[in-house]
């Protein structure tokens, strides 16, 4: 799914509130821009039931160009990290289990792994 489809879905659902597609488009872009600019300032974003975005620090490391073998120093940097919230995690995993049970009617018992 891409943004335009998401906006179409939201428009259909938000019709009763008197929001036009144009307003919803603007709103969605504002939400995305706010999340981005918050992370861009080193902040974090937290949405209950959905998840949180924060930054993970990645230390400097010695890398190399795989083509030439030349050594390159990869500078320390931050990476955006998303941690799914409880509701999202459970829903996605529950959906996976339903699909599994449909395709594989015989359930294999989980065997504990020996140390």
């Amino acid at each position: 799914m891409v943004k335009s489809k998401l906006i179409t879905n939201l428009t259909n659902n938000l019709m009763p509130l008197g929001l036009s597609e144009k307003q919803i488009n603007r709103g969605v872009n504002l939400i995305i821009n706010q999340i981005r600019s918050c992370l861009g300032k080193g902040g974090r974003v937290e949405v209950r039931g959905f998840g949180s975005f924060n930054l993970h620090y990645q230390a400097r490391r010695n890398a190399h160009n795989p083509k030439t073998g030349e050594k390159v120093i990869s500078p320390p940097r931050y990476r955006a990290h998303f941690k799914p919230g409880k509701e999202l995690r459970l829903r996605v995993n529950a959906a996976a289990k339903i699909v599994q049970q449909k395709s594989k009617p015989t359930l294999v018992a989980a065997r504990p792994v020996e140390a």
């Binding site: 981005r36 600019s37 992370l39 861009g40 080193g42 930054l55 500078p75 320390p76 940097r77 931050y78 990476r79 955006a80």
Partner: peptide
């Protein structure tokens, strides 16, 4: 997003 975060180094 990566571009904006890169500025934070």
């Amino acid at each position: 997003l990566r571009g904006e975060i890169e500025k934070l180094v």
